[in-house]
Write a protein that binds this DNA or RNA. Structure first.
Length: 490
RNA sequence: GGCGCAUUCGUCUAGUGGCCCAGGACAUCGCCCUCUCAAGGCGAAGAUCGCGGGUUCGAAUCCCGCAUGCGCCGCCA
């Protein structure tokens, strides 16, 4: 038995779309699981829309998700070239075989005529299929019109028959080819049409399994007819349910964040995105839902792919991301967070890596995305914070009584320091009871004074990381603020 | 209009004739923990299994019809 060959075939017409990423991931898992080969082929026959720079973003997206390929652009392999646009000679060669066998004829109908006919058919609620106008042009007449300089596409001659195949996901499928019109497989400018190029490429690259989106089901029947005409064996086909947007339409670029690079930029972890998308239409058959790449390679199989179209709702992605962030070591998380924190404009270099990691550790279970660190870590790195007076003052208390309490805190911090959280807790609780306040009533003003925020990690740990000097300086500033002194040196 | 595919809590889904007056997860709400925020624990609410027929002692599961959605029907991919 030959080694299975799977492929992914993105078109470089935009960023890496989440649906394509899922398809690529599924193929990757299948290839790895079966010990097969994974081929990357760029389908850039849409000359006008394909842009080389998109190739790079797509590659980066795949790599970010952990999807590696064995053959493809930049890597090479025995079945190159791996860009469809560089394979047109091959396509023409195979077109020749079809011509020789009488499966193809030249069609002189202009795009305008065809569009008109289509529009009319639609209006009259008839199926918009090609009339067959040029189907029986004689060889002589064809040659004559060609000589006269008319351009002509190549059309595939469809013979009535039932086309059937067993889909790896959907089971037995069939369609009546008698309902189609003859279809163009090569443009008048000699560039092959996608549907034909795919057949030739998959065959010549010896692809054994074509797993792709369900929007290709109808194409599959046409492709099978071409395989048969060429007398070459088709690969096994599998069609994945389409990811829909909230309005239940095919997910498109207009639906907001649907490209992998956006998730990258938003501070999602690749393992979370991967875990999230793999579950869009697949499940392991039990109640597990956290999967590493290795586990997925082990577990994944097409017969557990569901056939209904999932709606794309990123709610659960945040949860996955949080779980993965909490599961990391602090060092690892800090490393991943660093570029995001810098991008947010925080100066994390001058205070040293140890300080940064301690701060990250305190926020680890409080963030959903790497970008959150930019906000949540700010007070650790700013010179001063701006406490909101509304929350700085003790609940139902006065500014002056809060100020005097904070002043006492300054004294205690001076005397006992903040390095031992147990000690801090005990003297601060002691002060609270001395004042006759509930602990929380004292802690909140201290929190707001030293962090500028009401929502922070536990107070004593936070003070410990900030260090004595920062805490004292911020408390002093808060006292000044509370007493209406415009500014004061600490 | 034709053909194809699909239809279970808001969302992702489990379920392949009796274990299901439908299970899990996210989100939501409540309680607990607690110095705030999280995290965590516990719990609640949430699906007449798209609708209508049939088959069967028994159907979310099988059959038929309908509806709805999506896809394709391009010298786009």
């Amino acid at each position: 038995m030959t080694k299975p060959r799977y492929r992914m075939a993105p078109s470089p017409t935009g960023a890496l779309h989440i649906g394509n990423a899922r398809t690529a991931l599924y193929n990757y898992l299948l290839a790895r699981k079966t010990g097969g080969t994974y081929v990357l082929r760029i389908e850039d026959t849409a000359r006008d829309r394909s842009r080389p720079e998109f190739e790079q973003t797509i590659f980066e997206g795949f790599r970010w998700l952990g999807i590696e390929w064995d053959e493809g652009p930049g890597i090479g392999g025995d079945y190159g070239p791996y860009r469809q646009s560089e394979r047109v000679d091959l396509h023409r060669e195979w077109l020749g075989k079809l011509i020789d066998r009488g499966w193809v004829y030249r069609c002189f109908c202009t795009p305008e005529e065809l569009a008109d006919a289509r529009k009319r058919a639609q209006a009259e609620k008839r199926p918009p299929k090609y009339s067959g106008k040029c189907r029986s042009l004689s060889e002589a007449e064809t040659q004559q019109r060609l000589d006269a300089g008319e351009t002509a596409a190549y059309r595939f001659r469809v013979e009535p028959r039932t086309v059937e195949y067993r889909d790896l996901v959907l089971g037995d499928l069939r369609e009546d080819a008698g309902l189609w019109g003859d279809f163009v497989i090569c443009r008048s400018n000699w560039l092959p049409v996608y549907n034909f190029a795919v057949v030739i490429d998959d065959h010549t690259m010896e692809i054994t399994h074509a797993v792709r989106g369900a929007d290709h089901i109808s194409n599959t029947f046409r492709q099978i007819v071409m395989y048969d005409a060429l007398e070459i064996p088709p690969p096994r086909f599998g069609h994945l349910p389409l990811i829909l947007n909230r309005k239940k339409q095919k997910l498109s670029k207009r639906d907001g964040a649907v490209s992998v690079e956006e998730y990258m930029a938003q501070g999602y972890l690749p393992e979370a995105v991967r875990n999230f998308i793999v579950l869009l239409g697949w499940n392991p058959g039990d109640e597990r839902e956290m999967f590493s790449l290795e586990e997925l390679v082990d577990e994944y199989s097409l017969d557990r792919v569901s056939s209904a179209n999932p709606i794309y709702d990123i709610g659960k992605l945040d949860w996955f991301n949080g779980v993965y962030m909490r599961g990391m070591t602090v060092g690892e998380l800090a490393g991943r967070a660093r570029p995001f924190v810098k991008a947010a404009g925080l100066d994390i270099d001058s205070s040293g890596n140890g300080y940064f990691e301690q701060a990250v550790a305190l926020e680890q279970e409080r963030v959903k995305k790497l970008t959150d660190f930019g906000d949540v870590l700010a007070f650790f790195f700013q010179e001063q914070v701006d406490p909101d007076m509304k929350f700085l003052v003790r609940k139902r208390g006065t500014a002056e009584e809060t100020a005097s309490a904070l002043q006492k805190v300054v004294g205690l911090v001076r005397e006992h320091g903040v390095d031992d959280v147990g000690v801090s807790e005990s003297y601060l609780r002691g002060l609270a009871s001395e004042l006759g306040w509930k602990a929380g009533e004292l802690f909140m003003p201290i929190r707001v004074a030293s962090t500028g925020s009401r929502a922070t990690p536990p107070l004593f740990e936070t003070m410990q990381v900030l260090g004595k000097e920062r805490v004292i300086s911020r408390l002093n500033r808060a006292v000044a603020l509370l007493r209406g002194v415009p500014s004061v040196a600490s």
